[in-house]
Design a protein around this nucleic acid. Structure first.
Lengths: 200, 200, 200, 200
DNA sequence: TATGAATGAGGGTTCATTCAT
DNA sequence: AATGAATGAACCCTCATTCAT
């Protein structure tokens, strides 16, 4: 009804998108507010209408950056297909996503670096990965209950799986020619699911 | 004109050590040459007698930071003990090291972030991890030849193992209370080694 | 196109009042147009409907700030009471006013500072104080003619009296506990009026 | 003994002198650190070697600005000449000083403005003027004891004298043509000293 | 070999002012 | 008559780097 559309709701993602591209290109420290403004097509001062500081932009980006992927995992619990199939599909989609968004990978590592130094950021990521692990563990439990694979320590296996994905992403980023993301991920996933010794 | 070799040999590690501590605390960007000088107990100008620039300090640190662990792995190939035992010991020592040097973890992530943006750094780390994988694959081959575990795709398994370790380190950094580094690492290692499906 | 006169007549004092409070709190330089707008309960842009610039607000305030007191002094010339009594009453009222408006004192000093640097402002204040002195001198003349006190150099004594009041205000602002405004003012006034040597 | 003369002791007054000139010309707010640096013949960054911030420069200037004149007053107490003569000479020298340093007058008013807003600055100036009053009161006591003039309320008269001087300075700044600094000051001084009513 | 002093270049942030509605 | 949104122009301050000694 208001003659002016809510411009805030429009600007904030617009700026965060620009920040994503600029930070991906230059890193947090090298990126200038000027660069982000230009990339977003607004004036530098306009950034400060929506974010209190450069750190505030980074903090907002943190929340956006790690939000993706969790809903999808949650949805898999409702699916009718076998858990093993779900996981394979999920793995494949994550790989595709990784390739598509390779340009922003460095941002993730910067966030990990900050997390290692700052409790607040660490806590945020801790929570993100806790939800992640819990979701994955629930899915594994479902698969075990359905008899798809031997019972396993779901929490620990979930941790291993996530660690594996994060680690593989690293290895692939460094050496895409030598690391076959899909094949290695799926193969290792398969091994982790079949382990007979775990039930011991 | 340039410092006498013996003084150089003393100052350079002294400065790199200081840089390690300061970067660990503050990150590459926030750390000031002044801070490093102070931590090293020399004047700011003295840094420039041994390093051409801040980037040069960081580059030198890169070479030091990722050098550790490789010789140890190489040594294991000569060992008489079973490969499985070697690997478990190696895993345990890596965990201990991680805990001991947690304060410098953020530096590693900063290097990954830089690697994702700069080909030169990426290439350096690529080579490091290639040597790493090759060494580990050789060890796995040895174990398979000795009949300790079924034949496996050594390269791929090596990649998985390293990815797993790097990923677990991340998870532990974020959530040390929830991630039992030793147990998860050893358990996953064990699973990866025993996989019967792999031999197919 | 321009605001209707009645709205103008309402808004302008509303804004100047707000400016008075904000400038008193923060000083000309620190005060932001935003602050004044908020204090006045209007939007920042609205200020610019009534004032061309921040300097314009300050200029308008200058005219208001130093307008007070002169009419009162003029009125005393018409009074029937002895001049000495008039002056004492006037002194007392000025002291009361000072105490009541202590919060705005800093504005006056800022204006003096600007006057010392800018001829235009200096000229304005010069005129204000000339009228002030003339009025006071006329009153002193009246008192002398009525035989209340010995003839005196009226202009010079008026200057001294005003200087004394301004200076006392300063001393009191700095040290209200140590400077008894009323007592010192009245006492000095009395001395200045009685001086027998002046008639020489 | 040090090959380099203590450059700090040289730079600080050099910068404060420059600041005095620039602030006198432009006021605290309009003056840019760049201007001060240029006036002092150093780089902007050099200012920050000696002063932590612009406010710090201003604070240092405050201490210098109001330090003058007190020692001279103290010295008069030791003098053999009659107090009345001392005071007249002092008055004349203060007037001369005022004329010589008229360019910096606005700084004083800015300090008064700040004092009116900030307790810390107010306290500093309070102390300055307390010492000032005390010194002057002691001198007046001496004169009264020597029988030069009737006994008077020394503290109060000192306050009046200082107020008078400060106020006259203001009036003169605004209207040098109309205010005869020396004559008015000396005349009023004389009146204040002779007052017979005060002893009552 | 070492350093205290100095600086150029730059970047984050602020704010008076304007404009579209 | 009024305002939310936007911006250009500054300005303070920082810091990697250099220099004179």
């Amino acid at each position: 009804m208001s003659p002016r559309p809510d411009v805030r709701a429009q600007r904030i993602p617009q700026i965060l998108d620009a920040a994503l591209r600029v930070f991906g290109r230059s890193g947090f420290a090298q990126a200038r507010m000027e660069d982000i403004a230009q990339e977003a097509g607004v004036s530098k001062a306009a950034l400060y209408l929506y974010f209190a500081s450069k750190d505030d932009v980074i903090a907002a980006l943190l929340r956006v950056y790690f939000a993706r992927g969790l809903e999808e995992l949650a949805a898999l619990r409702e699916s009718d297909e076998p858990v093993r199939v779900s996981l394979m599909g999920w793995s494949r989609r994550r790989s595709a996503e990784l390739r598509a968004e390779a340009a922003y990978l460095s941002i993730g590592y910067e966030f990990f670096a900050v997390a290692a130094r700052q409790e607040a950021v660490r806590q945020f990521l801790r929570d993100v990965y806790r939800r992640y692990r819990a979701e994955l563990a629930a899915l594994l439990d479902k698969g075990a209950r359905q008899g798809e694979f031997p019972a396993l320590r779901a929490e620990e296996t979930a941790t291993s799986m996530i660690a594996l994905f994060e680690g593989l992403a690293m290895m692939w980023m460094l050496d895409p020619a030598a690391v076959d993301l899909d094949r290695t991920a799926e193969h290792t996933l398969s091994v982790l699911l079949n382990d007979p010794g775990v039930s011991r």
